[in-house]
């Protein structure tokens, strides 16, 4: 009799406890799960490109509410330092690592460790050739090459005669751009004068282009895969008075290149969108649904005519904040 009378209040109390318990249990996400390490090629404040990547990554971190640990070597050629930073990031066991590799070979042990631990790996900017990544966030460098080819031969009226200038034959980005050009301009439809390595010397580029103008008077295009090649080539073309007739095409922007573009000494710049790369890199790191493995960030072709359009100003003159 006693127990029979007690069941109802007890039942109600139990119900209340259940309600409170489920109420308290909701909405508690561990912040530990949302840590993302991002390792850039450099944290050099003078590198507008990487500072803009950083801005994009920070904007994404704010929007998506993730804890971001940003790092990178001071100089963009210090691959040993990058390996060390990557190692440090792995020790923290973040949810994902976003990496812009300087030199894949120098990072090989760390990359294997990441894949062994099952940490999500997002690669930005430069593709990995020998290792697997969960996602690759970058401009399509082959497509950039195709765009450059399109500028060289608009409407296929004239047969392009062109040369490549590079300062690093091993750079996968430069190779992909070259392949894109070659793909769009197969032998027969264009005449390729070859790829000339000018090293890190503007002087070397200047001399190379000058001799090319003498050797191949019919040359109507130069694709400079690095900004060093652009400066030397522009100087040589200006001196020989060929600025208008030989199309000089470069990749990524710098103040001298912009000035050359303003002067008309340069025909086009193909620029990437580093802000979007940083933003989408962080977004891809969080996207555990295993979405598309490659996130393509379209590059923009900037000519003298459109360089001061609002959207292109942002690309050419990165406003770092």
């Amino acid at each position: 009799m006693r127990t029979k009378r007690l069941w109802l209040p007890l039942l109600l109390l139990g119900f209340v406890v259940l309600v409170v318990w489920t109420g308290l249990g909701r909405g508690e996400a561990s912040p530990q799960d949302n840590r993302i390490a991002i390792i850039m090629k450099t944290t050099d404040a003078n590198s507008h490109y990487w500072q803009t990547v950083r801005s994009g990554a920070l904007a994404a971190a704010k929007e998506l509410e993730v804890a971001l640990e940003l790092s990178g070597p001071l100089r963009s050629i210090d691959s040993d330092e990058q390996a060390r930073l990557l190692e440090k990031a792995i020790e923290q066991r973040p949810r994902a690592i976003v990496l812009a590799p300087i030199d894949e070979d120098a990072l090989a042990p760390q990359l294997e460790e990441i894949s062994r631990l099952g940490i999500r790996l997002i690669i930005m900017d430069t593709p990995l050739l020998h290792h697997r990544a969960d996602s690759y966030v970058s401009s399509d460098h082959v497509e950039e090459g195709r765009e450059a080819a399109g500028i060289l031969a608009p409407g296929r009226k004239t047969r392009p005669v062109y040369a490549f200038l590079t300062s690093d034959e091993k750079s996968p980005v430069a190779m992909q751009r070259r392949n894109g050009v070659l793909e769009a301009l197969p032998a027969g439809s264009a005449y390729n004068l070859g790829m000339i390595n000018v090293g890190k010397s503007e002087e070397q580029a200047y001399r190379t282009v000058k001799s090319l103008t003498v050797a191949y008077p019919g040359m109507n295009g130069i694709i400079a895969l690095t900004d060093i090649g652009v400066a030397g080539a522009a100087k040589a073309l200006k001196e020989t008075g060929l600025s208008g007739s030989v199309k000089l095409i470069g990749f990524d922007s710098s103040v001298p290149e912009i000035q050359l573009l303003e002067q008309g000494a340069m025909h086009a710049l193909i620029v990437q969108n580093p802000f979007n790369m940083g933003f989408l890199g962080v977004q891809a790191a969080l996207d555990s649904s295993g979405g598309s493995a490659t996130v393509d960030i379209p590059s923009a072709t900037i000519t003298r005519a459109n360089m001061y359009a609002p959207e292109n100003q942002k690309l050419l003159f990165p406003f770092v904040y």
Partner: peptide
């Protein structure tokens, strides 16, 4: 209607 300032101006230009 032009954007003067937006924290994600680039993404808007890229229509992302």
């Amino acid at each position: 209607g032009n954007i003067v300032y937006h924290p994600q101006q680039q993404l808007i230009y890229s229509k992302l």
